[in-house]
């Protein structure tokens, strides 16, 4: 809204907006604060803030107690790998649906999205058995495949909405200029859709990073990512709040930092490309 508001009104809305934002953010903030307290200070009643015992020991202990770098690296490989593989399969599909739509394109898209509605738990046993049988249980390749398939409908849908914003005439111009289908996608479509592809990538890295069901079901140790790492710290029964918080912070901080550095693409991506 372009109109200038009165200073008084602006002060009130600013205060209100900041209060709401802080309330939403507070649980994360409180977790991060707790991670720097001693265990005693973390459960003190009334809660301690300024007078708390600040320490870095929790991080040191979590680091020494578990192989954080391995979990971290697994998370990176699995989330980035599944996203890139998904993009490779989804870009041609989204090209087809956006630029050569048929009567059933919309139904196809809805069908793809509906495969995501199948509760993971319902097919947990068969997938588990299949992964054992194929020899990809507890491997990074296996998880990359699983998460790629899980997010593929979302990737296709997002790319489809971004591609539809690109005028078809430009692709026809490329065709007239002698570009093969491959050249058309590589030299014209993909560079033009870079912002959309970046947003799609970012969102899917986050979705894959935060995936906890399949990563826990389909791994034991070798390929376990951070979501499995954090599960091993759960249920602390009272006295390990600070360490649980430190482990949680270590699990979410990489993605939190990534998100904050790429805010613009991310905000676009978080809307799943569905609204402008």
């Amino acid at each position: 809204m372009a109109r200038a508001a009165s200073p008084r009104k602006q002060l009130i809305t600013t205060l209100a907006a900041w209060s709401v934002a802080l309330i939403i953010f507070f649980p994360v903030l409180w977790m991060i604060l707790t991670s720097f307290k001693t265990e005693a200070s973390a459960v003190a009643s009334p809660p301690e803030l300024l007078g708390a015992d600040w320490t870095l020991d929790n991080y040191a202990e979590v680091w020494s107690r578990s192989d954080y770098p391995r979990f971290f690296w697994n998370s990176v490989v699995i989330s980035v790998g599944s996203t890139l593989l998904g993009l490779a399969i989804a870009i041609p599909a989204a090209w087809s649906m956006a630029f050569v739509p048929g009567k059933r394109t919309k139904d196809l898209l809805m069908w793809m999205l509906s495969t995501k509605m199948m509760p993971a738990v319902a097919v947990m046993i068969p997938i588990y058995l299949l992964f054992q049988w194929l020899g990809i249980f507890d491997t990074r390749i296996g998880l990359i495949l699983a998460l790629m398939l899980m997010n593929l409908p979302i990737i296709i849908w997002m790319l489809y909405t971004y591609f539809k914003e690109i005028p078809g005439e430009i692709l026809e111009a490329a065709r007239m200029d002698g570009a093969s289908l491959w050249n058309e996608i590589v030299y014209v479509l993909t560079p033009m859709a870079i912002p959309g592809i970046a947003s799609t990538m970012l969102l899917n890295v986050i979705l894959a990073w935060n995936e906890a069901f399949w990563t826990i079901t389909l791994t034991t140790t070798k390929a376990a990512p951070l979501s499995a790492f954090i599960a091993s710290f759960s249920a602390p029964q009272g006295l390990f709040y600070a360490k649980l918080s430190a482990a949680s912070a270590m699990a979410i901080l990489p993605i939190l930092i990534l998100g904050w550095f790429s805010q613009k693409q991310l905000v676009r991506g978080l809307t799943f490309g569905a609204v402008k």
Partner: peptide, 21 residues
């Protein structure tokens, strides 16, 4: 023949320039 093999060039209504080049 596909468009590229016809030896024709086209100027589009929207110009259809490649915005990233």
């Amino acid at each position: 023949l596909p468009p590229a093999k016809r030896g024709l060039a086209m100027v589009f209504q929207s110009y259809a320039l490649y915005p990233h080049m």
